[in-house]
């Protein structure tokens, strides 16, 4: 299946006098691992916040699977199959890794008060199914040994893996990852790239914000470059890296002497 899974048109958002997004257009094609890169302050994180519903855009539209999801609450967007991770691994520190994973399970009837009081069979069945799934995901991401550890006790890299694992628990069609390898050692970074490549091969679409260019080069195609709240260009990593506009956006313009 080809075609786009996510279409962002004219997305704008300002914080007081600061224009974070100034009309962002962005298309993510189904089955790709698309990178969104750009210098600090380009508006990448704000774009993620607006797409995932954590903050509302001032204007513009976000269409996911053909449906207008602009301004939806984050829980509805997750329910629709668009799941994001957080830049700084925001675990729920006092819950264990397993509980963090189970939290992202959908359709758990035990989240109603009455069912929780009664501890119904439906709740137990769903919990068992979610545990099964959590164990499988943890096994895949090398987290099986730390399932009972509190999230606060994980290493930085393990927290990143848990972020991905939690998102997978919600059955995403589109996974958006905010800096999945920031502060992660090169070995683990390569391992995370392999995990993401496998997810893509299984049919998942992934959108990534990342500053590690080795990681982006090895994994992402296409690469979309943002600067000053707008899209600058899109292409393969090679094309993007050799484009003078991109170099200028990152390095700054050479001073012109008049």
């Amino acid at each position: 299946m080809t075609g786009s899974i996510l279409e962002v048109r004219g997305l704008a958002r300002r914080f007081g006098g600061v224009v974070a997004l100034a009309g962002l257009d962005l298309t993510v094609r189904r089955g790709t691992v698309t990178a969104l890169i750009g210098p600090n302050g380009a508006g990448k994180s704000t774009a993620f916040q607006c797409i995932s519903g954590v903050i509302k855009p001032d204007s513009g539209t976000v269409r996911f699977e053909g449906q207008d999801i602009t301004g939806w609450r984050p829980d509805r967007i997750t329910g629709a199959g668009l799941v994001r991770s957080f830049q700084i691994a925001r675990g729920i520190p006092r819950l264990t890794v397993l509980e963090n994973l189970l939290l992202y399970g959908q359709a758990q009837p035990g989240e109603s008060v009455l069912t929780a009081f009664l501890g119904t069979a439906a709740q137990k069945r769903r919990e068992e199914a979610l545990r099964e799934k959590a164990r499988a995901i943890a096994g895949r991401l090398n987290l099986a040994r730390v399932l009972d550890n509190p999230a606060a006790a994980l290493s930085g890299g393990q927290k990143k893996l848990m972020e991905i694992g939690r998102a997978l628990m919600a059955d995403p069609k589109l996974l958006i990852l905010d800096e999945p390898v920031a502060g992660v050692n090169p070995t683990l970074s390569a391992e995370i790239a392999t995990h993401i490549a496998h997810l893509r091969d299984e049919g998942m679409t992934v959108l990534i914000v990342e500053h590690h260019m080795d990681f982006v080069a090895s994994l992402c195609d296409p690469v979309i470059v943002m600067a000053e709240g707008r899209p600058l260009m899109e292409g393969s990593f090679e094309q993007v890296a050799n484009d003078p506009r991109v170099q200028e956006a990152y390095m700054g313009r050479r001073a012109v002497h008049a």
């Binding site: 984050p74 829980d75 997750t78 329910g79 994001r84 006092r94 939290l103 989240e111």
Partner: peptide
């Protein structure tokens, strides 16, 4: 408990 620790995470986890 998730809401207590981080509301945004709980919301993204799909919880109203």
């Amino acid at each position: 408990r998730a809401i207590r620790e981080d509301e945004d995470v709980a919301a993204v986890a799909g919880k109203p």
